[in-house]
Design a protein around this nucleic acid. Sequence first.
RNA 1: GGCUGGGUAGCUCAGGUGGUUAGAGCAUAGGAUUCAUAACCCUAAGGUCGCGGGUUCGACUCCCGCCCCAGCUACCA
Length: 538
Amino acid sequence: MTVHEPIYITTPLYYVNDELHLGHATTTIYADTLARFWRACGRPVLFLTGSDEHGQKIHKAATAAGTDPKSFADRIVGKFFELWDALDITYDVFIRTTDDFHKHAVQQLFTRLNSNGLVYTGKYEALYCVDCETNSTEKDLVEGRCPIHKSVPQKVQEENWFFRLSAFTDRVREHIEKHPASIVPEARRNEILGKLKEGLLDSSVSRTTFTWGVPLPWDSRHVLWVWSDALVNYISALGWPGGKALPTDAIAGRRRHQHTRAVGETPFAYWWPHSVHLVGKDILWHHTAVWWSMLLGAGISPPRQVFAHGWWTVEGDKMSKTLGNVIRPLDVATRYGRDALRYHVLREGPARGDADWRQALFVARYNADLANGLGNLVNRSLNMLGKYCDGKVPAEAAFADPALETLRLALGARVDRLLGALSAKVSELDLDGALEEIWLLVRDANAFVNTSAPFKLAKDPARKQDLQAAMHALCQVVHALCHAVAPFLPDAGTRIAAQLQLAPGQPLPEGLRWGALPAGHQTGKPEPLFARIEEANA
RNA sequence: GGCUGGGUAGCUCAGGUGGUUAGAGCAUAGGAUUCAUAACCCUAAGGUCGCGGGUUCGACUCCCGCCCCAGCUACCA
């Protein structure tokens, strides 16, 4: 593991036209977990999220709400901030596409594309379905009519600026083939490669029918189309092209964590080669073919990796406003705790394919893994420590019984192996797999309690040394779990640390070591970590 | 239609360059235990590894065909 290699983790910028739902929270929780894990490993991390605020939709929504687009965006962004606060998302940078520095970067990028001969004016023709409020292509229509509304779309024609996407088909494909890990999972990479086989078509990047956007520097009648503007955030946030510091550092309220500083070079030069974009599967195309072409056209390398996750369904149905089954992350967090939300997202979420949010499964997993598994282990261990050792960590000791001693050593070996196992899984963005590694330890440790039975040893003065061996081992396990769990379940990490009377947030390489909790250390009062959920027929 | 995945225990999924009794977690049943949040631990039951052919001494794993599901099919955040 190269712990010193930086990593730049990004979520998409969420569009300010609506409340954020479980899908947005999922991407953000993945990102936050990665950020916390790598920070804990001592790796330089920059974690970016933000809001996408331009475009016709926002303009319309604002007008409908009787306000101007910026005020409208301000209001919605306020809700984003509240949600990420409530979920304790530790972003280093929150960018808004209405930030001046971003607009300037976008303009510079397009100026560069223009001087490289990659944009030109052309006629944009589309069939606009008034009912869908969107453009459709001939292919979408059934007998010349919108398949949903059965209406005949109007032909709209507009003079637009076009980007020569078509010039990049081969370069993008070659890049993917040369860097297979640049798009994960593999099935998604194949999708993109498959589409690339058909070749890229030039795409229009500007609009003239509204003004809520970034004006083209050389033709101010045009504003850039939302995507053309939004994607640039990943580099504008770094101060591209030449900024010496992160632009958002100068703006109040734009970070919930103090990021690692780029050393010896500009933030862009430092972070960009280590960029990992987390996106939903719906926007993978934009984040690969389109975005990479824009970058290549401006002489910038594509991001190191794009990870596309799937979507949630809810009890088997598509999550939609119309069905009224939208899951609000804040509701879940308020009711069950934000760790419970995180755990379910990380454990059962759509990291590979799509996933189904089922309340019964949520409750079952919570009770089995969090309450009965981790929570109970920590609680029973610290309880016994309090009863049998006055809450003081005993010195390490060996069991007289060789079978028990073998178990003890195996437990120690598992603790010492955990950091490597976790790093391997997290490197592959397999957060579910990482949790499984942690729970292997939880299960082993619970079995160890039953087998070594400290509660029996405590009754037999002749077996004092065995009791010491058992309790020392359990202390080390709880200490290790406290650290291992923290990036995934931050509140649990903090609460275990409090019960151990330790400062939270110690680095993983020190925390995940057998013997790291010193003999004689006084622990605090044990408290259940996760109350069982008792819901009738949930 | 084309392309890409996938169909393995009730549920969610691992796995296998073909070779004795196919794995895990959850759920279920029985047992043991009392430190703990009626938690934990042990054991058991549970699968014709989508269907039909073929290759082979032998296939769930390879080949062919078929069925079913999901995703992608670009200007929709």
